[in-house]
Design a protein around this nucleic acid. Structure first.
Length: 271
DNA sequence: ATGGGCACCTGGCTGC
DNA sequence: TGCAGCCAGGTGCCCA
């Protein structure tokens, strides 16, 4: 499911329900996530107040009084705010019970998601330390993208999905951003001109921001904290549109596999 | 340093 | 109806 817009949608959805509240209990029903959830985790977080609900790349960060809960939704995860006592369903792996009784429930069919508790500055944690700047911050601009694309032979699509270089862009938004920037996904990153880099940096920001405004993209199972799907799917130009006419020029959209992931582009609009 | 491929999982869909 | 095969929104890790 989740790329940056879906994670940000989730963050905004849970924020008003969790910040300022104390954790009554953390109930782990299935610890076998991407990494096994430590058995000591519930005892370590119980009783702590949630100070903030943040995000870094595709990670959600719940700042507590003595540490940070780090949550990743993986490919199929979702986090919902539910009334006390809501019965559990399939793949409901973790419940965070607030002092109000409200539940923050983590569901993840594929279990690629993760949940960790880190003490100290979370930004120095190995999972976060090497991440590229936030694409919606001032640090991410034409100059930055220009610099990191120099001498790289990887296809530009794979480059913008590499979190050490660009963060928050997954398989959907990579194709969409490249369409917006009119750049072919298979082009070597180092072959971008300064003008291309500027167009791509701008396209990434615009696509992500627009998707956040629409509440994310729901292809199959993404839901926000309130259980509602995202509506950006209607605004996709190329993703999962192979064979259908380009929304700009009517040329059939093409599909190929790059780095084991499906890529979509318009052979007419993108060079 | 860079890049490619695999692994981790479940479920939905297609075609025989 | 059953089953095999393929596909799916992520990313850490191992190897060349």
């Amino acid at each position: 499911m989740p790329e940056l817009p879906e994670v940000e949608t989730t963050r905004r959805g849970i924020e008003p329900h969790v910040v300022g509240h104390r954790i009554r209990a953390l109930r782990v029903h299935e610890p076998r996530l991407r990494w096994r959830v430590e058995a000591s985790l519930p005892a370590r977080v119980a009783g702590q107040k949630i100070l903030a609900a943040g995000r870094r790349a595709k990670y959600l960060l719940l700042a507590l009084e003595r540490g940070t809960l780090l949550l990743h939704l993986g490919m199929s995860g979702s986090l919902r705010v539910l009334p006390a006592g809501t019965p559990r369903g399939k793949h409901d792996h973790v419940d965070l019970v607030l002092d109000t009784g409200t539940l923050l429930r983590f569901n993840d069919p594929r279990r690629f998601g993760s949940l960790l508790f880190v003490e100290g500055d979370p930004q120095t944690h190995p999972l976060l330390a090497g991440l590229a700047p936030e694409p919606l911050s001032a640090d991410f601009d034409a100059g930055y993208l220009w610099r990191v694309t120099r001498r790289r032979r990887v296809a530009v699509k794979q480059l913008i999905m590499n979190a050490r270089l660009v963060v928050g862009v997954g398989n959907i938004y990579a194709s969409e951003a490249l369409f917006r920037a009119r750049i072919r996904p298979g082009r070597e990153a180092r072959r971008l001109t300064a003008r291309d880099a500027a167009a791509l940096a701008r396209a990434i920001r615009t696509v992500l921001a627009n998707a956040i405004r629409a509440g994310g993209t729901t292809l199959r199972d993404f839901v926000g904290a309130d259980g509602a799907p995202g509506y950006f799917r209607q605004k996709l130009f190329v993703y999962e549109r192979a064979g259908q006419p380009c929304r700009r020029c009517r040329t059939p959209i093409r599909r190929r596999v790059q780095g084991q992931r499906a890529t979509y582009w318009c052979p007419q609009c993108q060079q």
